[in-house]
Design a protein around this nucleic acid. Structure first.
Lengths: 197, 197
DNA sequence: GTCTATAATTCGATAGAC
DNA sequence: GTCTATCGAATTATAGAC
């Protein structure tokens, strides 16, 4: 993490504009349909500048899909509020930043994007779950189950746009999905003999 | 199940081979990356035959993405087994037929595929949920919540291939996800004051 | 730093021979 | 019914003028 030059170059603004446009395009169209030409048009610059700054379409995507879930430290969340805390966090994060939606759309067809998605959930989410008090031996599986519900919510709400899921408030969604995540985090393994919840 | 013409035409075998190859390609690559040329190569026929039989790439996809969830009549399922019954049904259906995975991959970038996915879940799933004994006023929302978990499971297991979700047995997955679906189907609206599951 | 021009591919779709 | 040949369009990427 060496610092950038103190004197901001003109190119910095251009780079930032390209990145912002790229995130929107990748989120709206997925990796294949999002063209460098379209990104450049959105950023109101020449297509060749995108190549100059990011080398290739893959390089542009790699820069645009840099993503931090900003997960809270689950060790400091009351045990009975883990599920709803996480549900609200994800919904807020997605509404504020379309990068994860871009990554999700791209991950369906682009192997590199899928790999990055696996990395984010293996790294950031599994790490956070491991600090929630879950048994270390089951933390990875619990994180996977949480991901299945969390990404399914993002998929149906922001990508497929299933009307009932789009129409529910974030608050209502968190009230429904929170207990699901709570159970995935806390119910003993295996769940077979436990009461349904 | 009306029978085909007694004398099978040679073209029938070709059409079937194209359709089979198309489902695999769309499932593996998504709509954009799956090319007519690749489908034809897989089916070991000439690319122009695909055009002849299905008119266009859109037409080919429309034929390949014809899909019936084959949902059971939920009115005949014991109320306390609804969730696990549905979870097992979907897992079995996906393992046997890759069409829904093809549709899911394509729905991320192709508006027509997303529309078809909405149609399937609005039609088939919401209809089945309405027969499960759920309040008609909330059936659509319940079906949407069920879809969020069901499609999230398909996404993480078959598309993104998140290792923990891939490694769990279908039985184990059904035991985890079944209670989630059960709660989405049966918990009173709104869920806020109910005890977490 | 910015843009024009274009190379090199690849794709969907069409026309027509056999 | 099947195949060859090819068109027209779109894309990523490169070379180089200013």
């Amino acid at each position: 993490m060496t610092g950038p030059p103190a004197r901001a170059r003109r190119s910095d603004a251009t780079r930032a504009a390209i990145l912002r446009a790229a995130r929107e395009r990748f989120a709206a169209d997925g990796y294949d349909r999002a063209t460098i030409r379209a990104v450049a048009a959105d950023a109101q610059i020449d297509p060749s500048m995108v190549m100059r700054y990011y080398g290739s379409k893959e390089g542009l995507f790699a820069a645009a899909a840099e993503f931090d879930l900003h997960l809270p430290d689950l060790a400091q969340v009351p045990a009975e509020q883990l599920g709803e805390t996480l549900a609200r966090h994800f919904l807020r994060r997605w509404e504020a930043d379309g990068t994860l939606v871009a990554l999700l759309r791209a991950a369906s067809t682009n192997p590199g994007a899928a790999e990055r998605m696996r990395g984010i959930f293996a790294g950031q989410l599994a790490t956070a779950v491991a600090r929630s008090g879950a048994d270390p031996a089951t933390a990875a599986r619990r994180a996977g189950l949480v991901a299945s519900q969390i990404l399914g919510l993002a998929l149906t709400r922001y990508v497929i746009r299933l009307p009932p899921v789009v129409e529910l408030d974030p608050d209502e969604l968190a009230e429904w999905v929170g207990p699901t995540i709570q159970r995935y985090l806390t119910q003993p393994f295996p769940p077979s003999q436990a009461s349904a919840g």
